[in-house]
Amino acid sequence: MPTEWRRALAVVAHPDDLEYGVSGAIAKWTDEGREVSYLLATHGEAGIDALDPADSAEVREREQRAAADAVGVSTVEFLEHRDGVIEYGPALRRDIVAGIRRHRPELVLTINHRDTWGGTAWNTPDHRAVGRATLDACGDAGNRWIFTELIDDGLLPWDGVRWVAVAATSSPTHAVDVSDTVERAVRSLLAHRTYVESISDESPEDYCRSVQDAATGAGAEQFGGVPAVAFELFAR
């Protein structure tokens, strides 16, 4: 992965999206003194069947902030789109452009924007919409004639995004060695305890470790045999 950057912005649909594999790389970067901020399209309010969406949103925001803290991230922002029915289009692109102009990153992270996770494992509409809008917004952010109202709000164009790194892709091109940060990645996912307990009968600890082992093991198979977080890198 490129190392000539100081600021990154991670843009995803839901609380926990970054903890399913990416957080180990983020922990490594913050340990190196790099600045990483999170921008989430929703509060994940539709993600826990047993909780009313309003209650779920509160729980999931709290757990997401704890998950971010576990890997050295202090800035977590939510865009207030509706979980499960995010719409790709100008409104979503504008909100992501605003985040990019606010944080002025050189590296932007997101997750798989394609129809499947590879093969016939179908991706969700929210992931597809946010991933695709993020790729588009990185270009929009530098164009003063797109979303001109943002300039009135003091958000000046930012054409400094040099790379977009897409995680959970079936076509990885780059990877980050996370040998030293796997344990923090496990703790980061474990911060989503309420959500994890709602989707798995395993103990949360065992579930979170198995998820991280699977994620970093897949990267290891392709990138030198060490635990790794893999990305598909789009240069700009």
Rank of each mutant, 00 (worst) to 15 (best):
W5Y: 15
R7S: 11
R7C: 04
A8N: 01
A8L: 02
A13T: 07
P15I: 03
E19P: 01
E19A: 15
V22Y: 07
G24K: 08
A25T: 07
I26R: 08
W29A: 11
E32I: 04
R34V: 05
E35G: 02
E35Q: 14
S37L: 08
S37M: 00
Y38W: 10
L39D: 04
L40T: 05
A41I: 00
E45Y: 04
E45S: 11
G47S: 12
I48K: 03
D55K: 10
S56D: 12
E58L: 12
R62P: 05
Q64I: 03
R65N: 07
A67M: 02
V71M: 06
S74M: 04
V76F: 02
E77Q: 11
H81F: 15
R82Q: 15
G89Y: 10
A91Q: 13
L92G: 01
R94I: 01
V97T: 12
A98Y: 00
I100C: 05
R102V: 05
V108D: 00
L109W: 04
L109I: 03
H113F: 10
R114F: 02
T120N: 14
A121E: 15
T124I: 11
P125G: 07
P125W: 01
D126Y: 06
D126P: 09
H127A: 10
V130G: 13
V130I: 13
G131F: 12
R132A: 14
T134V: 13
T134G: 12
L135Q: 14
A137V: 11
G139I: 12
A141N: 10
A141F: 09
N143Y: 14
W145T: 15
F147R: 08
E149S: 14
L150E: 13
P157E: 13
W158C: 11
R162C: 08
V164P: 03
V166F: 05
V166H: 08
A168S: 13
T169H: 03
S179M: 03
D180Y: 01
R184S: 09
A185G: 15
S188T: 09
L189F: 00
L190S: 11
L190G: 08
A191V: 00
H192W: 03
H192T: 04
R193T: 13
E197M: 11
S198Q: 03
S203I: 03
D206M: 05
S210V: 04
Q212W: 00
D213C: 11
D213M: 12
D213R: 14
A215I: 02
A218F: 07
A228P: 09
A228I: 08
V229Y: 01
F234R: 15
A235D: 15
